[in-house]
Nucleic acid binder design. Sequence first.
DNA 1: CTTGATGCAAAGGATTTGCACAAAT
DNA 2: ATTTGTGCAAATCCTTTGCATCAAG
Lengths: 145, 145
Amino acid sequence: MKSKMQMIESILKGKNIKLTKQRKAIMEIFLNYDEHFKPEEVYDLVRNQGIGLATVYRTIEILKIHDIIEEITIGKDRYYELKLFSEKALHIHFTCKKCNRIYDYDKTEMVLDLIRLRNFVEKEYHVDVEDMKIMMKGICEKCRR
Amino acid sequence: MKSKMQMIESILKGKNIKLTKQRKAIMEIFLNYDEHFKPEEVYDLVRNQGIGLATVYRTIEILKIHDIIEEITIGKDRYYELKLFSEKALHIHFTCKKCNRIYDYDKTEMVLDLIRLRNFVEKEYHVDVEDMKIMMKGICEKCRR
DNA sequence: CTTGATGCAAAGGATTTGCACAAAT
DNA sequence: ATTTGTGCAAATCCTTTGCATCAAG
């Protein structure tokens, strides 16, 4: 059985994309921590390996285009997180207005609503929906008390 | 009965925000066309009145903070559109991957699903949801044929 | 009058790009 | 060998800010 890393590698190989040590290092960040990162944050984690910021941006772009990671924008910040293999394939991003923490919610109960929503849109507007993002903003449990 | 413009004016008056001719001109863009605009696009529509780009940015910020317009980010672009008074209070933004057109969908049937989703999140995670955005990406009807 | 707003140009921050060199296939 | 990727620094793009001046309340 192939590891996730190997699966990503074979996806990229099929597209003439070379597997450099820089790209592997960056991919590992997303695979090992199932979290969101800003480009700068990824850079901080790999710069000790002599990897430049431009390479981080270029690699993120590649991973995004091939749907391995996804981009979420919150206010003025852009984050990236693993999309492929993520158990929380369809999840909701919640940002707290007070503490600015970002939470990912992914209960199955919601996924059903989301799928229904997608099906409705596809039928009603005759489109193919390939991707959806739900962002909520409000006050989190900790900040409410 | 107050016009929408008058209502916005009274909201802003209560906050020590002066009603300059520049701000009125920019507010009218959002009121008259119920569409999304980039800052530059708003600027193009008001620059003939001698309004500077910085003022457009500053006014957009004010309108956003007071929930008169809302921000949506699609890829690398940031758009703003009327939020207050908008019949399509809760709507879905759909972007076509091929033609890059942006559509707003707002059938009531979906709104119910969205409200249920919000209620679920609030109960399950003990948060207050004040705002939500749904972005979908895919292929639109025109580009499918 | 007094305070807050404007326009301009300059500054800032994030992202992209050109290019000579290096590494993967 | 060829092709593609990398690091660096410079360039670009979007957005914000400082400041002298102007206008709203």
